[in-house]
């Protein structure tokens, strides 16, 4: 099954995706982060705002994702499969990278993002590192938002970031609960 996800990701990326210059995209994200740092006093708020921006994106991105990949719910039998799809199809089709899924079980997983595109030409100042800025924190909100829309309540946190002097960039996804599907009132 794992192989299928990889080829599905490749296939979608090659045939169904319009593209834009990576560097332009990365510069734009960087400029947004600079704007947030200017607008907010502390890096904690910047992290929060990035998370919020990611969340808003994720909530809408999932529709686009499902429409393009035609993945149906039985494919996501368990959380392990969800993690595989996230890494091999999701990341592939939106950012053209495939993070490595480390240690996944049915309640949590760790994604290691090698070659995070957002790191391109970015260096953090010592104040930013000391202040606790997670430069790519919008990933957290994005994954949380997208999975919430498919009934999975998760918590996403960064474990390490190359920009902060760590060896790798990785984040952890904890499954909190599967949200019950509720039929809206008055809807038969």
């Amino acid at each position: 099954m794992a192989k299928n996800f990889r080829s599905l990701g490749e296939d979608v990326w090659k045939t169904r995706i319009e593209r834009i210059n990576l560097e332009f995209f990365v510069f734009t994200y960087g400029s947004l982060v600079v704007q947030l740092i200017k607008d907010f006093e502390d890096f904690d708020s910047v992290n929060k705002q990035l998370d919020k921006i990611g969340y808003n994106m994720g909530v809408r991105l999932i529709d686009d994702f499902l429409a393009r990949t035609h993945i149906k719910s039985p494919t996501c039998r368990d959380f392990k499969a969800v993690a595989e799809i996230l890494a091999k199809v999701g990341f592939k089709m939106y950012l053209n990278i495939v993070p490595t899924v480390l240690s996944s079980d049915n309640s949590k997983c760790v994604l290691q993002i090698d070659d995070n595109p957002f790191d391109l030409n970015v260096e953090l100042s010592p104040e930013m590192i000391a202040g606790g800025l997670w430069y790519s924190n919008f990933y957290c909100g994005l994954i949380r938002g997208a999975l919430e829309m498919v009934q999975l309540s998760v918590n996403v946190t960064f474990l390490s970031d190359v920009l902060r002097g760590d060896d790798t960039t990785s984040l952890q996804i904890d499954l909190l609960k599967v949200i019950d599907e509720q039929v809206p009132e008055g809807d038969e």
């Binding site: 990326w13 995706i17 319009e18 593209r19 834009i20 210059n21 990576l22 560097e23 332009f24 995209f25 734009t28 991105l61 686009d64 089709m93 939106y94 950012l95 053209n96 595109p117």
Partner: peptide, 9 residues
Amino acid sequence: GGEVSLNSF
């Protein structure tokens, strides 16, 4: 020459 999805942008 690196590219990402236009949708992401």
